[in-house]
Simulated assay, not measured.
Amino acid sequence: MYWVAPSILAASLSLLAGCSHRPSAVEGSKCYATAMPTVGEGGLAWGDNQKSARNKALENCEQYAGRSGGTPKTCRIVEARCK
């Protein structure tokens, strides 16, 4: 189980890196959230407030976890912040 934390960190960083080339998508957004499933890829989302960012992150997590053969129904918010 020692691989879980590095896996979550790697997935989070890859999601952040994937969003870095689209500054216009997050330019007006104040908040972001990251959601991760027990198994599979997670989701990152930006929003005007924490509620919208969290909802979008959960939706993205379920979508990506399903595509990656993971467990979409286990998605949980692991980080949510506002600027």
Rank of each mutant, 00 (worst) to 15 (best):
M1I: 00
M1Q: 07
W3F: 05
A5C: 00
P6V: 01
P6C: 00
P6K: 02
I8C: 13
I8D: 08
L9A: 12
S14V: 08
S14W: 11
S14M: 14
S14Y: 09
L15E: 10
L15R: 08
L16M: 10
L16W: 05
A17F: 10
G18W: 03
C19S: 15
C19A: 12
S20F: 10
S20I: 09
H21F: 13
R22N: 08
P23D: 12
S24I: 07
S24P: 04
V26Y: 08
E27V: 01
G28A: 13
S29I: 01
S29M: 14
S29C: 09
K30A: 06
K30I: 01
A33N: 11
A33I: 05
A33D: 11
T34R: 12
M36N: 09
P37L: 05
P37A: 07
T38D: 13
V39P: 04
E41F: 11
E41K: 08
G42L: 00
G43L: 04
G43E: 02
L44N: 04
L44R: 07
A45H: 01
A45L: 02
W46R: 09
D48M: 14
K51T: 12
S52Y: 00
S52K: 06
A53H: 05
N55M: 11
L58W: 04
L58A: 01
E59M: 07
N60C: 04
N60M: 05
C61G: 04
E62M: 13
Q63D: 11
Q63R: 10
A65T: 00
G66D: 11
G66L: 00
G66Q: 09
S68P: 04
G70H: 03
G70L: 03
T71A: 05
T71K: 06
T71P: 00
K73P: 01
T74W: 02
C75R: 10
C75F: 13
R76H: 13
V78Y: 14
E79C: 10
E79N: 15
A80D: 13
R81K: 14
R81F: 06
C82I: 02
K83F: 10
